[in-house]
Amino acid sequence: MTRFLHSFMDFLRLLGHETVNRVWRLGYGSRFFFAVLFRSGASLTRGRLILREIWFSGVLSLIIILISGLFVGLVLGLQGYEILQRFGSAGALGTMVALSLLRELGPVVAALLFASRAGSAITAEIGLMKATEQLKAMDMMAVDPVARVVAPRFWGGVISMPFLAALFSTMGIFGGWLIGVVFIGVDDGIFWSSMQASVDFRHDVWNGILKSFVFGVAVSQIAVFEGFDSEPTAEGVSRAITRTVVTSALAILALDFVLTSFMFRGIS
């Protein structure tokens, strides 16, 4: 009985400790977020710094985004046709493919891929710079690491994300078209016109872009924070990378729910 009580007390203690730790990290993370925003001046006026990071997080993620987008589109085309033709509305294939990509799959899947490709790389880069004392060296050279290292990576990610999501959706629609029109034989004109008739620029395309922008901010912020906050050892950096991918995925899906319930309430 006493043993049970003891382990129960230990559990409570652990729970309390973990909770306090989480709340502390949340506070520290928020403070860090504002520090990054306030110290972005230097990186925003020196375009070359951000250019390098767009290359790092945008261009290097291009291949995986394009290929995944194509495959998601192919699957949507197949499944969509299979379901829609049961109701005799195979003509709505274009609408289905476009709406599901623009509203949800484009921003969400592109952000998940971005988190695992670019987010983890950003965390690894900053974490290793910390582990090898590069950040401290920079600080001792009177160069603010948050302004010089963190802020450009953050903005590079934020800028890249909407482009990547748009490219993902475009490739997906192309994939859906390929399956639907080229292989299955849905009418080309109906595919596009049904799509154009039901896809609204502001409600569907613009909201999708807005979503991907929010995801870009969230993933980039998580990635730079985990890197900056990582324990300066090989093990600490690898744990930070894992945390980046896991936290990003959770943040993307939770934010997606919140954004969707705001954006698409009352319409259609």
């Binding site: 748009a166 959706s169 596009w192 799509m195 154009q196 609204d200 999708g208």
Partner: peptide, 12 residues
């Protein structure tokens, strides 16, 4: 891609 989504895909 953004232009494609705006002009070809949506009813813009």
């Amino acid at each position: 891609a953004l232009l494609f989504l705006a002009l070809k895909v949506s009813s813009f």
